[in-house]
Amino acid sequence: MKNLKSIALALLAFVTLSTTAQTKKVDAAKSTINWVGKKVTGAHEGTINLKEGALIFKGKKLVGGNFTVDMTSINTTDLDGKGKANLDGHLKSDDFFGTENHPTANLVIKKIADKGNGVYGVNADLTIKGKTNAVGFEITVAGNSATADLKVDRTKYDITYKSGNFFSDLGDKAIYDEFELKVKLVF
């Protein structure tokens, strides 16, 4: 009877340990966020830095996460010189991300669906310029890294500069509402 009780306690301890959530801090210096913004006449691309973040696992299954992005680090990579300086400054201005008053953006995972093979469907809250909206995307976890591609509608965050949905007669000066993010997280 004593042996059966020991086995039951060991099994309970194993189940408890295997279902306990583990938070894995993301290495911000090794992680990357690339962006692309498109307009009628072309596109611009660049990078932005992750300030901090964490993924939460139960066993090997992703169950949550949260991230803070340093909006002041927005950097255009397809231009140089004065053109780059002008676009970087404009993206940081109130026409776009207003980084003086909103130096960070945040993403908090709210719900995850395991699609198998390390792929998860994610529903999250994204906060930009103090406005929070739901976003959905897929994230793929492999080893100590994760990748995700997101499309974000900037107009949901009151970023309407040269949006064809808010201004008429823009012609070829219109900027598309969605921008794309390609994220690689290392933890």
Rank of each mutant, 00 (worst) to 15 (best):
A8N: 02
D153F: 05
A142Y: 00
N123I: 05
G171S: 08
E138Y: 09
G121E: 15
Q22L: 07
K25T: 14
N117C: 05
L91M: 10
E138R: 04
N101Y: 01
G130N: 03
A10D: 08
T41Y: 09
T160Y: 13
A105F: 10
S31I: 05
G37P: 11
K182A: 15
F187C: 05
G64R: 06
L91V: 08
E180H: 15
N66L: 08
K162P: 03
I56A: 10
P103D: 10
K82R: 09
A174H: 07
D177V: 09
I33R: 02
T68H: 03
L50K: 00
A134K: 13
V119E: 05
T76E: 09
G136K: 08
K173N: 14
K2C: 09
G136A: 06
K129P: 05
K162H: 11
T160C: 13
T127V: 10
N165K: 07
D177C: 15
T47C: 11
G164K: 09
I33F: 07
S31K: 04
L62H: 02
K61R: 15
K39L: 04
F167C: 02
L91R: 03
V152M: 06
D172G: 00
N75S: 03
V183S: 12
G89P: 01
V15C: 03
G118C: 06
T23L: 15
G42R: 11
V26F: 07
A85H: 05
G171W: 04
G64D: 04
L62M: 05
G46P: 02
K173F: 13
I48C: 09
T99C: 05
V63R: 07
L185F: 06
A174I: 01
S31Q: 00
T147E: 05
I109P: 00
I112N: 02
S31Y: 00
A29W: 11
I56F: 12
G98M: 06
Y157Q: 00
I109G: 00
G83E: 15
K61D: 15
E178C: 00
S168R: 03
K173Y: 05
M71N: 11
F179A: 04
S145C: 08
D94M: 06
K51D: 01
K129W: 04
I7C: 12
K51N: 03
V122M: 01
K182F: 09
I56E: 10
N66Q: 15
T20M: 14
E178F: 08
V15P: 07
